[in-house]
Structures are given as C-alpha cells and as structure tokens.
Amino acid sequence: MTPTAEKFIALIEIITRLRAPNGCPWDRKQTPQSFKQYLVEETHELLEAINDDDPSHICEELGDLLFQVIFLNNLYQEKNLFTLLDVIDSITTKMVRRHPHVFGNQTIESEQELRQQWQTIKNQENERKGHPRHPLDSIPKSLPALRRAQRVADRVAREGFDWPDLASALGKVDEEFAELHHAFAHGSRTDIREELGDLLFALTVLARKADIDGEDALHEATTKFSRRFLTLEKIMSKQGQQFVDLAPEALLLIWQQAKSEADTAPENN
C-alpha cells in the first residue's frame, strides 16, 4: 500500500471514529442539511487561498475540503445509501466517458468542438437516466448571483445566442443604464429593482464578451475599495476627524488623497 493510500484510509478511520457512539458530540449531531454551510465555507476559504497564491495555505484548505467531502459521504454511507467506493467509481466512469478524445479514439480540433462534445455526452447521460435536462438546468441556482449570471451567459452563447461584437454588448449596457435612470425618475421600487438587475446582467454579459471574469473583477474592485477606505480612516484618525464632521466636498478631497496613498503603497507595486 502506498503512503497516500495509507493516509487516505487513516482519514476515513478518523471520520468514522468521530461519528461513533463514543465520538465527538458535535460531529455526531451533524446531518447533510446542517453540514451544507460548512462545505460552502470551506470551499470559499480554499478559493481565497488560491487567490492569495499561498501554496501552504492552499494545501491546508484542500485538506479541510477533503475532510468535508469524506465526512458528508460518511453521513450517507451510514444510512446504506452509497459508499465512498460508489462515489469514486461514479466519477471515474464519468470522466472516462466524457473524454473519448483522451481514453478513446476520437479527435478534437478546437475548444469549441470539445465543449460541444462534452454537452452532447451530458445530454445523452440525462436521456439514459430518463430525465433529459436543458443545459441551463445544470447551472445551480444556489451559485452566487454573479457567478450564476456568468455561467448562464456563457451557456447561451455556446448555443449561438450572443452579441456579434463587444460594441453591441456595450450598447446593451448603455440601454439598460438609461432604463435604470428612467425607473429612478418615474418608476416604482419594483421597477428600479428589475432595471438594476437587468443592468447587472448586461454588465456580466459585457465582461464575458471582453473575456474578463466578472467575479474576479468585482473581487479585485472590492479589495481595492477596502484598501482605500482603510487608508481614508487612518488619514482622518491622524487629523482627528470623523465622517459626521466633514462636508461632502471635504470628504471627497480626503478620499482622493487616500486613493493616491493606498494605490502607491509599496505592497501594491
């Protein structure tokens, strides 16, 4: 047995021990429903580690996520619904089946052809299961809104429903922005909410058309804003000022100073 296999089995045994009658009370009371939140949290912690490009942190978070996956499997295995072997066998068979250009004799000439083949195989799988699904149905509604919008925009573009060029997509953003202006001036709160959603979706489509990951772009913008705001607070603290004491014009001047200082700090160069 290889060291990796030994460690993997040891982890399974640890989880089994935690769930045993004399194990950990917290682990014993978990259900698939109660455990979902921890799975989501660990996934986001791994994503943050990847964004930070910290190998040691990524290694740690991968371990945490692996624990979550095996623990969740154990909850179902205890009910004799399926085993870890079933899970591994299922994904192994699926990956081989969906890569005939690797494990078979098919050839692929382009990424577009690869995507089409992947979707065709998925459709065939769903038909064999007796419940064919539209490609949009496979996009989880529980995804973060921006990520879900990106996936939907990408999926329909593969079907041929797409703007012919970047200028057209940008024109749609301008159109939706004008409609939002009109809603603020003449519409109800419901109208404003709808038009704001339309504008956000149009921006998502524009990002895809520009080959930019909107989720990453928004994260970067939020991080930049947070960095500038923290600098703003430091400047105001040194000057003994508070937000309530400043007129909008004075606050804007300090904000411009904070932007300059934050963006030229050594750690951002």
Score class of each variant (00 low, 15 high):
Asp27Lys: 15
Gly130Pro: 07
Arg28Ile: 04
Phe161Lys: 14
Thr93Lys: 12
Gln150Pro: 05
Ser34Thr: 11
Asn51Arg: 15
Lys141Asp: 02
Leu206Ile: 04
Leu230Phe: 05
Val244Gln: 15
Gln119Trp: 07
Leu199Pro: 02
Ile50Ala: 12
Thr16Ile: 03
Thr16Phe: 03
Ala217Val: 02
Arg228Asp: 02
Arg28Thr: 02
Glu127Ile: 11
Gly171Tyr: 04
Gln106Asn: 10
Ser34Ile: 01
Ala178Ser: 07
Ser188Lys: 13
Leu114Trp: 08
Ala10Thr: 00
Asp174Gln: 15
Tyr76Arg: 12
Cys24Trp: 10
Lys259Ala: 08
Glu194Tyr: 06
Pro248Tyr: 13
Arg28Trp: 09
Asn22Tyr: 06
Gln257Gly: 04
Glu215Lys: 15
Gly171Thr: 09
Ala49Lys: 13
Gln77Glu: 14
Thr204Ile: 06
Leu166Thr: 01
Asp191Phe: 08
Ala221Thr: 03
Pro25Ile: 06
Gln124Tyr: 04
Lys259Cys: 13
Ser142Trp: 05
Leu47Thr: 01
Asp245Trp: 05
His99Lys: 10
Leu72Asp: 01
His182Thr: 08
Leu18His: 12
Lys141Met: 02
Lys7Ala: 14
Val152Asp: 00
Val173His: 06
Leu199Ile: 03
Val102Ala: 01
Ser260Tyr: 14
Thr120Asn: 10
Trp118Gly: 02
Ser90Arg: 12
Asp198Val: 02
Met1Gln: 11
Leu136Gln: 04
Leu230Ile: 05
Ile212Phe: 06
Gly171Leu: 09
Thr92Arg: 08
Trp118Ala: 05
Asp211Asn: 15
Cys59Glu: 14
Leu146Gln: 01
Ala210Met: 14
Arg155Ile: 01
Thr120Phe: 08
Leu230Cys: 05
Glu42Ile: 07
His131Tyr: 01
Glu159Asp: 07
